[in-house]
Amino acid sequence: MDYELIKERIETVVSSIQQIGGGVQEVVIEEPVSQEQILQTEEQLGVKLPKSFKKVLQEFSGNFSLRWFLPDNREQPNEFREIFCGTPHWSLELLPQFDEARKAWIDNVFPNPENEYDVVWHNKLAFCEVGNGDYLAFDMNDDMDAPIVYLSHDDGKGHGYKIANNFIELIENWSRLGFVGCEDWQWLPFTTSSISGINPDGEAARRFRTWLGLKI
């Protein structure tokens, strides 16, 4: 993974949003974490972190956050009318907190692993809090390099969708879409099925970059 290229894409996104009058509230790229910090978190969680996630944590950043918002008066094409922001984030420190929240949803709302909807919440590791009760999570059924899936708490269309095959693929593809918002309705226009993942090379992605002025 070319981390300098990812940083350049982040700078391009920030510049493009500011040029159209949008707001950039936060750009955080903290230092990478140590192997010891990862081991401590794995012990606390009781699971091994996916290998591509650990690679990014150790080589790029252990705490990343970007928050941008489109201007209120920005006229949007109908296909992108649900897109209004980008809020990607991950943090090794907050990982246990996010996953405790996922477990609370299981205990209180989605306890039945035999239920088609409930089971999507099981055997996952939440790493990104959407902010509305939903999460981006690793599917820990693959204990080597877990796919990224969406957990919806209220029948969201993207519930159970595979967003990427692993964490590095997620960052590569998501960054080329300007890190559009975490809510499923913001990234669904860039998928073709529940297993396609977000596609940064499709026609919708090209139209989105052109509309937003993103040269990525």
Rank of each mutant, 00 (worst) to 15 (best):
G131M: 09
L136C: 13
L125H: 13
S152E: 06
A146P: 00
I171A: 06
Y161C: 00
N123T: 02
G133F: 11
F84L: 14
S65L: 14
G131S: 07
E75M: 07
A164W: 06
I171L: 13
D134I: 04
N73R: 13
T192H: 08
I163T: 06
H153C: 14
E172Y: 02
F167W: 04
G178A: 13
K124E: 04
S194W: 00
A164Y: 11
L170M: 14
W174V: 11
D184W: 12
L177S: 00
E116I: 12
P77Y: 12
Q186A: 06
D145K: 04
G178C: 10
E93D: 14
P88H: 04
D143K: 08
F84H: 12
Q76I: 01
H159A: 08
T191G: 05
W121M: 09
Y135R: 10
D107M: 12
I198L: 05
D155S: 13
P189E: 04
H89W: 04
N108H: 14
N173P: 00
F84M: 12
E93L: 15
V180Q: 02
F138Y: 08
L170Q: 06
C182T: 04
G62Q: 02
C128L: 10
S61N: 06
D143I: 09
A164T: 10
G178N: 05
P77A: 15
I168V: 13
D184H: 05
T192G: 04
E172T: 03
A137K: 12
E93H: 15
L177K: 01
E172S: 07
I163W: 12
S152P: 09
L177R: 00
K124L: 05
E183P: 13
M140A: 04
W90D: 02
L188N: 05
G197E: 01
F167A: 07
H122G: 07
G158I: 07
N78S: 12
E114M: 04
L70G: 01
F64Q: 07
I148D: 05
A104E: 15
I171D: 09
A126H: 11
F60I: 05
Y117I: 14
K157L: 14
V180I: 01
E183T: 02
I106S: 03
L136T: 10
C85Y: 01
E100K: 15
K157E: 08
H122K: 05
N112M: 10
P96Q: 15
W68R: 00
D134N: 11
E79A: 10
C182H: 09
Y161A: 00
D154F: 15
L92E: 06
W185Q: 05
D72T: 02
E82S: 10
S194R: 01
L177Y: 01
E183A: 03
F138G: 00
N108F: 13
W105P: 00
G133A: 09
N63I: 13
F110L: 10
E129S: 12
E100F: 11
Y161S: 00
